[in-house]
Computed example of a mutant assay.
Amino acid sequence: MLYTLLRPLCLLLLCGALSLTAQPASAHTALLESRIAKLLAAGHHGAEESAPRLRIRLLTPTTKLALLCEKPDLRLSGHPVRITGNRSVIARCGRKQHFIQINVSASGRYWIAARLLKPGQTISPGDIQPLSGELDKLPAGLLLDANQIVGRTPTRTLRPGQPLTENQLRQRWLVVANQEVEIVAPGDGFLIHAKGKALNNAARNERVRLQTRSGRVVAATAVAEGRVSIKMDN
C-alpha cells in the first residue's frame, strides 16, 4: 500500500528532474539556432529592408549537439547560391571540429519582370515588380534588392512574371568591341586625352583591351559611356 501511495510522487519527481535537465539543452539549441541565423543574415548583400526572414531547423540530433562546447566558433560550409534548403555549419571547439546539419526556409520580397525584357535593354524601375511570399521553391540566385537589378541588362529574353535571378542579368556594357573610345590617362598634375579602339566589351570598372592610334595594344578600365582610363605605366 505504501508503494502504491509513493509511486505517483516518485513519477512526479522523476518527470520534474527530466524537465529540469531538458531546459539547458533546449536553451543551448535555441542559442545555436539564433547564432546560425545571424551568420546566414550576414551573408545578405543588399539593403537591410530587402533581407529575407530566415527560419532555421537543426537536423543534427540533440545528443550530438550536447557534445559541443558552450560557445563554439561557427562558420558556414560552402558557398551555395540558393538561400534555402539543407546546409552545413562548421562548429569549432578548440582543435575539435564538428559539422551541424541545418535546414533553412525563408520568406520575403523578391522581384519579377513586369513586362517582356529583351537582351541588351537597360532595366528601369518600371520594368520590375515586387512580390512577397515563401522563397523555398523559387529559383537559385534570386535577387531580393531592386538596386541589384535596375541599370543592368538581361542576358536572355525574360517573360512577364518571371522571377529575376543573378545569372539572368549582367552589367550594361559601357564600351563594346570595335567601338572608338576616349582614352583618359591621368598623371601627376596633368591629364592626357586620346582616342583608341576597344577590343572587347566591358562594363563599369571592368578591364578592356584597346588599340591606340599607333597600333599599340594596352589594358584600360571602363569608367563611363565610351570612356576608359589607362595608367601611365601601361
Results as ranks from 00 to 15, higher is better:
residue 93 C to M: 10
residue 93 C to S: 14
residue 93 C to H: 08
residue 93 C to Y: 09
residue 94 G to F: 07
residue 95 R to P: 05
residue 95 R to N: 13
residue 95 R to M: 12
residue 95 R to S: 13
residue 95 R to V: 12
residue 95 R to Y: 09
residue 96 K to Y: 15
residue 96 K to H: 15
residue 97 Q to I: 11
residue 97 Q to K: 12
residue 97 Q to P: 07
residue 97 Q to G: 06
residue 97 Q to A: 12
residue 97 Q to E: 14
residue 97 Q to C: 07
residue 98 H to Y: 15
residue 98 H to S: 15
residue 98 H to D: 15
residue 98 H to T: 14
residue 98 H to A: 12
residue 98 H to E: 11
residue 99 F to A: 15
residue 99 F to W: 15
residue 99 F to Y: 15
residue 99 F to G: 15
residue 100 I to F: 08
residue 101 Q to L: 13
residue 102 I to H: 02
residue 102 I to R: 07
residue 102 I to Q: 05
residue 102 I to C: 02
residue 102 I to P: 07
residue 102 I to F: 08
residue 103 N to I: 01
residue 103 N to R: 11
residue 103 N to M: 06
residue 103 N to F: 08
residue 104 V to E: 04
residue 104 V to D: 08
residue 104 V to P: 09
residue 105 S to H: 08
residue 105 S to Q: 11
residue 105 S to Y: 05
residue 105 S to G: 09
residue 105 S to L: 06
residue 106 A to K: 00
residue 106 A to T: 01
residue 106 A to M: 02
residue 106 A to E: 00
residue 106 A to V: 00
residue 107 S to H: 01
residue 107 S to L: 01
residue 107 S to D: 07
residue 107 S to Y: 01
residue 107 S to K: 04
residue 108 G to V: 03
residue 108 G to Q: 04
residue 108 G to C: 04
residue 108 G to H: 03
residue 108 G to K: 04
residue 109 R to P: 03
residue 109 R to Y: 06
residue 110 Y to R: 00
residue 110 Y to P: 01
residue 110 Y to E: 03
residue 110 Y to K: 00
residue 110 Y to W: 05
residue 111 W to P: 08
residue 111 W to Y: 08
residue 111 W to H: 06
residue 111 W to K: 04
residue 111 W to L: 02
residue 112 I to S: 01
residue 113 A to I: 02
residue 113 A to E: 00
residue 113 A to L: 00
residue 113 A to R: 03
residue 114 A to D: 11
residue 114 A to T: 08
residue 114 A to S: 12
residue 115 R to C: 01
residue 115 R to G: 04
residue 115 R to V: 00
residue 115 R to I: 00
residue 115 R to P: 00
residue 115 R to N: 03
residue 115 R to A: 06
residue 116 L to A: 13
residue 116 L to P: 07
residue 116 L to C: 12
residue 116 L to D: 14
residue 116 L to K: 14
residue 117 L to P: 04
residue 117 L to C: 05
residue 118 K to F: 00
residue 118 K to A: 06
residue 119 P to D: 06
residue 119 P to Y: 03
residue 120 G to T: 07
residue 120 G to A: 09
residue 120 G to C: 09
residue 120 G to S: 09
residue 121 Q to N: 14
residue 121 Q to K: 10
residue 121 Q to S: 14
residue 121 Q to R: 13
residue 121 Q to Y: 09
residue 122 T to E: 14
residue 123 I to M: 05
residue 123 I to G: 04
residue 123 I to R: 03
residue 124 S to Q: 13
residue 124 S to R: 10
residue 125 P to T: 14
residue 125 P to E: 13
residue 125 P to S: 14
residue 125 P to F: 10
residue 126 G to L: 14
residue 126 G to T: 13
residue 126 G to C: 11
residue 126 G to R: 14
residue 127 D to N: 10
residue 127 D to W: 06
residue 128 I to D: 04
residue 128 I to A: 06
residue 128 I to F: 04
residue 128 I to M: 01
residue 128 I to S: 02
residue 129 Q to Y: 12
residue 129 Q to E: 15
residue 129 Q to R: 14
residue 130 P to I: 08
residue 130 P to W: 08
residue 130 P to D: 09
residue 130 P to S: 09
